[in-house]
Design a protein around this nucleic acid. Sequence first.
DNA 1: GCGGCAAGGTGACTTTGTCACGGACGCCAG
DNA 2: CTGGCGTCCGTGACAAAGTCACCTTGCCGC
Lengths: 228, 228
Amino acid sequence: MTRQDRHIEVEDWTERFAGPRSLPRALRDELVARSRIIKVAAGKQIFGPGQATDSLLFLLEGTVRVSQTSESGREIVLYRAVAGQSCVMTTACVLAEDAQAAEGVAETDVRAVALPKSVFDEMVSLSPDFRDFVMSAYRRRIHDLLRVIDDVAFGRIDGRLANRLLELAGTADSLSVTHQQLATELGTAREVISRQLHEFQRRGWIVQSRGKIDIEDRDALAHVVDSV
Amino acid sequence: MTRQDRHIEVEDWTERFAGPRSLPRALRDELVARSRIIKVAAGKQIFGPGQATDSLLFLLEGTVRVSQTSESGREIVLYRAVAGQSCVMTTACVLAEDAQAAEGVAETDVRAVALPKSVFDEMVSLSPDFRDFVMSAYRRRIHDLLRVIDDVAFGRIDGRLANRLLELAGTADSLSVTHQQLATELGTAREVISRQLHEFQRRGWIVQSRGKIDIEDRDALAHVVDSV
DNA sequence: GCGGCAAGGTGACTTTGTCACGGACGCCAG
DNA sequence: CTGGCGTCCGTGACAAAGTCACCTTGCCGC
C-alpha cells in the first residue's frame, strides 16, 4: 500500500467515525501516524481468549462473527459486527479484557483500522462525536446480548432456526451452511437442527442437499419466527 | 435533608466516582447544584419499559435487581447492581434507551445520586477517571450478560439453582424465598424449581418450609455447582 | 473405483418446560 | 371457630429439547 493510499484511507475513516467537525487537525494527523489499516482473511480469528490485543478494530469492510464457547466446548454466536452498519467497532476491547471464552472470527475478508488503546483514549477525551459513537456501540452490543438471552431462555428452536435461515440467506433463496454451523449459531446440538430441518423439508418449506439449503417458502418460515 | 448534609453527600460521591484529582473545582460545584440525592423504597421500580428517565443513577446504598421479561411474561434476572462494589452505575441509560423489556427494581431501600444526562456528558468529557469508571461499568455489565448466556444456553438447572441458593444465602444458612422467585432468578418455571428443591431435600442438602429454605449441606450444593 | 472423511440420519434415553389440576397453609371477616 | 380466599407448593401426564451411540451417505483426491 502506498503512502498516498494510506492517507486516503485515514481521511476516510476519521470522517466516518469521529466526525470532521470535532476532530482537530493536529489530532487527526497524529492518528494518521499512530494507526494502521489491517486486513484479515476470511476464517481467521481476530480476537479471542489467550490473545491479548492492545488495539481496537474499526471495520471498514467485511463482517466479524463474535461467539462464546462454554467449558464443555459448545458454542453460540453472540452477534455480528458488520461494516457499513452504524456500529462497526469490534468489542475486542471489552471482551479481550475478560480472559473470557469470547472470540471474534472474520466471516469474510476484513479490512479494518487498528487503533492502539492510547490513541483510542485520546480520541474519546477529545472528540464528543467519537465518544457518542463508542457509547452507542456499547449500547448496541448490550442490546444484542439481551436479545440472545431472550431467545435462548424463552424462545423455541424452530422459530429461532427459521429466523437464522432467513437472516443468513438475505435476499438469496439458497444458502451454503452445514447443520453443525447452524447448531453453533443457535447454541444447540447438531441433531436438534437436523431434526428441525427435516421437519421443515417435510412441510415443503426448504429443500436440503449436502451443505446447502434452498428456501422454498419464505412466508411459512417467517410465520414460524413470530408464531413463537 | 439539610443543606449541610447534602453538601457532605456530594463531597462523598464525587470523590468516590470521579476521583478528586481530575475533577476541577468548578465542575464539582456545578455538580452539587445539578444533581440530587434520591431515595427509593425496597420493591419500587427504578427504571423499566415505558419509563423514560433522563438521569443516571449511581448507587450509594442498597442493591438493584435488573431483569428482563419476555413477551410471554416469563422473567429472568440479568444481574444485580450492589452499592459498595466497584461498579455502582445502574445501566438505566443503556437499557432505558431501548424501549426493551428490561427493568430495574430496588431490592433493598436504595439511596443514589441522580445525575442528569447533560451533567453526565460533561463529566465524561472532563474527567478521565470518571470515564474509566463508566467504561469499566459497561464492561462489567457485558461480562455479567455473557455469564447469563453461558448459564442459560449450556448450564444445567440443578447447578444453577444450587449456585443461586448459595449466593442468595450469603453466609446465613437460611433464606426466605419462594419457588416462584427462584424460578424468576433463573428464567425457568416454578415446577422445575419445585422438583429440584424436592430432590435437594431428599438428599438432605436443604430443608424446606413455606417460603423458606434452610441450607443443611453447603459442600454438597457447592459440589453440584461446578460438577456442571 | 476406492479409501477416508465430513455431513447428515436415527433411535433410545434424559432433562427441562408446559399444562392442568388439587391440596395445604395463612389470614382475615363474620 | 369457621368459612372463604389468595398464595404457595406438589404432582402427573405430556411436549420439547439435549445427549449418546451408532449408522449411512455423499464427496473428493488418488
